[in-house]
C-alpha cells in the first residue's frame, strides 16, 4: 500500500515580487513502513512539499494521494489530516496544554474519540516515546527533546498512517536530537510506522531506508543512503553535504587508503579501517 502517491506536483507562491515556483513537477511514492529522509537546501521546496502531505497546501498542478485519498477533494480533508501527523521545528509552537497528558489528548479529543479510549491512547503514545513518567508534568519545563517527543506522542494518539518531521531536530541539542531520532527509528523499525524526515543534518538522513534529494522544486536524486551519499560531488554542487564519516572516508581514500565506497557512519569506517591490515 502506498501511503503517499504524488504525481507531477506543482506549487506556485504568489507574493509582492511576483511568482515563485516552489514545486515544479515532483513525483514521489512512499510505501507503508518506509522511512524516507528528504534533504535539500533552504528554499529547495522541501517544506512546501511536506505541507502537501496533509493538505495544508493544495496542488497547483498534479495530485497528491494519501492512502489513496486525493487531497483536492474537500470532503476528504479531515480524513487526510488524520492520517498524516506533522512535527515542526519549534517545540514550543506545537504544545497547547499545561499538562503533558492533556496535550497528548488534545488530538484524539478533537477527533471525537470516546474518553475511555483517549486515556488508553494517551498511555500508549507516551509509552511509545518513552515519556510515561512525565504525564503530569508541565510541558514548558521539559527539555527540547522531551517536548518534541511529547509532540510526537500527540500525533501518535491520533493513530496516523504517516508521521512527518519537518526539521524537528533543528533547535535541539545533541542529546535532544538523538532522543528524537531514536524514537522515530524505533517507531519505524519495531512498530512499522511510516515516517518522512525532512532534515539539514546528513547524519540523520543516513539512518533512513531511502534518501530523496530535492532541488529547485524537483526530485533530483533518490536511493538508499549509500547510493545517494556516494554522489558527493553532485550533493556539494547542490549546496548539500555528505555525512562526516563519509567525507572522512573519501579524504582517506584520496590519501591512498584502499577503503571501499559507501561508508556512512563512524562505526563502519572504523570496521573497514581495521579490516585493512
Amino acid at each position: 500500500m502506498d501511503i503517499l502517491d504524488i504525481a507531477d506536483l506543482h506549487h506556485i507562491y504568489r507574493g509582492h515580487e511576483g511568482e515563485t515556483i516552489a514545486l515544479a513537477g515532483v513525483d514521489l511514492v512512499v510505501s507503508e513502513g518506509e522511512f524516507v529522509a528528504v534533504i535539500g537546501r533552504n528554499g529547495s521546496g522541501k517544506s512546501t512539499l511536506a505541507k502537501h502531505f496533509n493538505a495544508i497546501l493544495l496542488p497547483g498542478g498534479g495530485r497528491v494521494l494519501v492512502a489513496g485519498l486525493d487531497t483536492r477533494e474537500e470532503a476528504l480533508l479531515w480524513s487526510v489530516r488524520q492520517m498524516v501527523g506533522m512535527v515542526f521545528q519549534h517545540p514550543d509552537n506545537q504544545i497547547v496544554a499545561t499538562v503533558v497528558e492533556e496535550d497528548v489528548a488534545f488530538g484524539p479529543e478533537n477527533l471525537g474519540v470516546p474518553t475511555a479510549e483517549i486515556i488508553e491512547r494517551v498511555d500508549a503514545s507516551l509509552r511509545q516515546v518513552n515519556m510515561e513518567d512525565y504525564r503530569t508534568h508541565a510541558p514548558h519545563l521539559l527539555s527540547g527533546g522531551q517536548k518534541q517527543r511529547v509532540a510526537i506522542a500527540g500525533i501518535l494518539a491520533m493513530r496516523p498512517r504517516l508521521i512527518v518531521l519537518d526539521e524537528a531536530t533543528a533547535m535541539l541539542d545533541p542529546i535532544g536530537r538523538s532522543e528524537v531520532m531514536s524514537t522515530i527509528l524505533r517507531l519505524n523499525r519495531e512498530e512499522g510506522m511510516t515516517a518522512v524526515l525532512i532534515t539539514h543534518h546528513m547524519d540523520e538522513a543516513v539512518k533512513a531506508n531511502r534518501v530523496v534529494v530535492i532541488d529547485q522544486g524537483q526530485v533530483v536524486l533518490s536511493g538508499t543512503p549509500a547510493e545517494v551519499f556516494s554522489q558527493y560531488k553532485l550533493l556539494e554542487a547542490l549546496g548539500l553535504d555528505v555525512p562526516v564519516a563519509a567525507k572522512l572516508s573519501i579524504l582517506l581514500a584520496e590519501s591512498g587508503l584502499p577503503l571501499p565506497a559507501h561508508i556512512l557512519t563512524a562505526e563502519q569506517l572504523v570496521d573497514e579501517l581495521c579490516r585493512l591490515n
Binding site: R41, N42, Q89, E167, A170, M171, H200, G239, L240, D241
Partner: peptide, 12 residues
C-alpha cells in the same frame, strides 16, 4: 546565539 540553526550546509 546559534546563528546556523535551521540552515542548510552551504548556508551554515
Amino acid at each position: 546565539d546559534e546563528p546556523t540553526a535551521g540552515l542548510d550546509p552551504r548556508g551554515r
